[in-house]
């Protein structure tokens, strides 16, 4: 494992073809690393689920299923933070305020999409959208081992 600035350790770095069949590989890696870092199996499973949702959004919305594209997944940790960062070059996501989840209304409206964002926000302690210096989209997902910053 390589030491990064600010006392973080890069535990995993992988470039992933933007295809939904790759989701399984990513979530298995995230779950494995989360358990190694010290999360209980249920929390590790939830973190992998949140990352799965974020990757699926990149594939289906940022790249609109353009299968020749790819995105990057990095996992870095310090003593208390488990940080997953996703980089892509697709259409930028404009985060707004996430409305309250009303599943009865969604069912009445036959609304199928958008649930992944709720899962990401429920599971992760911090979610930050940004842009890198080379204009790539960057989504940073943080989970604290001890529940607080």
């Amino acid at each position: 494992m390589k030491k990064n600035p600010a006392n973080t350790t890069l535990r995993y770095s992988h470039t992933v073809p933007a295809r939904t069949e790759e989701l399984r590989v990513v979530r298995e890696a995230v779950e494995r690393e989360a358990v190694r870092f010290g999360f209980d199996p249920e929390t590790a499973f939830r973190i992998a689920l949140a990352v799965d949702e974020a990757c699926a959004n990149i594939i289906e919305h940022a790249y609109r299923d353009r299968m020749d594209s790819n995105f990057s997944v990095e996992i870095a940790t310090d003593s208390n933070q488990f940080v997953i960062t996703l980089y892509d070059s697709g259409t930028q996501f404009q985060p707004g305020r996430l409305p309250r989840l009303d599943i009865r209304q969604r069912a009445r409206d036959h609304r199928q999409g958008g649930l992944g964002l709720h899962i990401i926000n429920i599971v992760m302690d911090a979610v930050d959208y940004g842009t890198t210096s080379n204009s790539r989209n960057c989504l940073r997902l943080v989970k604290y081992l001890n529940g607080t910053h």
Binding site: A56, R106, H110, L115, G116
Partner: peptide, 14 residues
């Protein structure tokens, strides 16, 4: 994942 949940959501009213 939510993609699976969404399918149940889409058909329950019908």
């Amino acid at each position: 994942s939510s993609a699976g949940l969404g399918v149940f959501m889409a058909f329950i009213e019908d």
